[in-house]
Design a protein around this nucleic acid. Structure first.
Lengths: 239, 239
DNA sequence: CCCCTAAGGTGGTCGGACCACTTTGGTCCT
DNA sequence: AGGACCAAAGTGGTCCGACCACCTTAGGGG
C-alpha cells in the first residue's frame, strides 16, 4: 500500500507523511468535500497497513495545517479551503502537475502588496550594510547577458532583503509563509523584460534606496514585481 | 505538575496542549535560545508526568508551528523566531500579559498593507450582495452613540468582507492567519475617532464602493485602519 | 592530533489497552 | 406519529511497553 520510493519524500516520519500526503491529495481533488468526515484513525491505519499512532499523526498534521478539524468523538471533518491555514497554499499549487494560473495570479497579487509595502519601510529603516547589499543586487540585475533564471533569482534575493530590512517580523513571517517551499517549480522562467527598462528600473530603485524615498521605492519595486508577474504567468500559460 | 485548571484551555488533547504551551512559554521567554535542544520526548514525558506519546505530540505540534525543527536522532532544536511560521504570532503577542506595542505596531502595518490593498480588488470585483452589505456596515459605523467596542467590531466585519470580496483566496488565507485567535484581548478599546471624521470617511468609502473606484477605496480604507491603529496603540500604552 | 569506530541517545513505528466523549440508533412515553 | 430519552457503538486522547533506524558523541586506534 505504501511505496517506499515516493514516500521517502520526507525523510522524517515517512509513513505518516505519506498518509498525510495521500489525504491532502484526496481532499484537494474533491474526494472528501467540506464538512465530510475522513476515515477514523483506526480505519485509516488498517487500510494503510500502518499502526494507529502513525495514521493519527498524519491526521493531526492535516488538522494543524487547517485541512480538517478534529473533535473528540466526532471524526476529522474537512474544512472549507478558504478557512485553512497558509500552509495549504503549497499543496494547492502543487497538487496539479501545473499550478492553476488564476491561483498563481492571486498569490502574486498578495506578494506584491506585501513586498511593495515592505519596500517603503525597508528604505526608511535599512542600515548601511543592507543598503550596500541592495546596491550590489541591483548592479547584478543589470549585468548584460544575465540568464533569465538568474535574473529572477536576484529579484528573489532582493525581496528577501526588503523583508529583512523592513524591520518587521510579521512581514517577514508572512513572506516566509508565502514563499515556503515554493521556490521549487518556478525555475526556468525564460522570458524577461527588455534590458533597457530593467536598467531604468534598477537605477530608480537604487535612487530610492539612497534617498530613503519610501514612495519611490514602493512604486518601482511594484513595477519590478509586475514584470516578474508577467514573465511567470506567460511562462505558465505557454508551457 | 499539570494544573488541570489552566491546562483546560484546550478541550482537545489537554495534556499535550499544556505541555506544548509550557514549552512555547519557555522558548519565548528565552529559556531555550535559538539552536538549543529541547528535552527529549522521554525526558519531557517523565518530567511532566505523562506518557511519551503525549509529550511527543506536544513536540510535533511545536515543530509544525515552526518553533523547533525535529530530526531523527538529534533532538528538537529551537528555530530563530523570524524563521517560524505565522502561527507563532499569536503566542508571541500573548505570552506577556500585555502585548508588545512594537510588535502590535508591526502587525498593524502588515494588516494595513494587505487589507488596504485588498480593498482595491474588493470594490472592483464585489457582487451586488457584498456591496449592499458594505453599505449596511458603513451605515452602522456612523450610528450615533455607537460604543467604541461595537465600532471596532464593525470595522473588523468590514475588513472581513473586503477579504472575501477581493476574490483572492491567498489574501483571505493571509488575513485568516493574521487574525487567527487574535480577536480576543483587543476588546474594550475605549477611544475612537471624532464622529464627524468618521462620517466623512464612511461616505468616502461608500462612494468608492458605489463607483468601483479602487484607488479611493484603498486610500480611505487605509485611513480607517490608521484610525484603528491609533486607538489600539494608545489603549495599549495607557492601560 | 585526527580519524574512525562503537555505544548510547533520539525520534519513528508498532502492538495492545483503557477512558471520556460524541454520535447514533432504538425504545419508550406522550 | 412525533418527540424526548437512553444505551450501545464508534471516535479521539492517553497510557503502557517494546523494537528499529538513525544521529550524536565519547572513546580508542592510527
Amino acid at each position: 500500500m505504501l511505496e517506499p520510493d515516493r514516500a521517502a519524500a520526507d525523510s522524517e516520519a515517512p509513513r505518516a507523511s505519506a498518509i498525510a500526503e495521500r489525504l491532502r491529495e484526496q481532499i484537494l481533488s474533491g474526494k472528501y468535500g467540506p464538512g465530510e468526515r475522513l476515515p477514523s484513525e483506526r480505519e485509516l491505519a488498517e487500510r494503510s497497513g500502518v499502526h494507529r499512532s502513525c495514521a493519527r499523526e498524519a491526521l493531526k498534521r492535516l488538522a494543524q495545517e487547517g485541512f480538517v478539524a478534529i473533535r473528540r468523538g466526532g471524526g476529522a471533518r474537512v474544512l472549507p479551503l478558504e478557512q485553512a491555514g497558509l500552509g495549504v497554499l503549497q499543496h494547492l499549487l502543487m497538487h496539479a502537475e501545473r499550478p492553476d494560473p488564476s491561483l498563481v495570479s492571486q498569490w502574486l497579487d498578495v506578494h506584491e502588496l506585501v513586498i511593495a509595502g515592505g519596500a517603503r519601510f525597508a528604505v526608511e529603516r535599512a542600515d548601511d550594510a543592507e543598503r550596500a547589499r541592495a546596491r550590489s543586487l541591483l548592479a547584478r540585475l543589470v549585468e548584460p547577458q544575465l540568464p533569465s533564471a538568474a535574473l529572477w533569482s536576484v529579484v528573489d534575493e532582493l525581496t528577501d532583503l526588503l523583508a529583512v530590512a523592513s524591520r518587521n517580523v510579521v512581514l517577514r513571517m508572512v513572506r516566509n509563509a508565502l514563499t515556503a517551499q515554493l521556490r521549487v517549480g518556478r525555475k526556468h522562467v525564460d522570458n524577461c523584460p527588455p534590458h533597457k527598462a530593467l536598467v531604468q528600473l534598477a537605477s530608480a530603485i537604487g535612487r530610492a534606496v539612497q534617498q530613503r524615498d519610501g514612495d519611490a521605492a514602493e512604486t518601482h519595486v511594484r513595477t519590478l514585481l509586475r514584470a516578474q508577474r508577467k514573465a511567470l504567468l506567460s511562462r505558465l500559460q505557454n508551457a
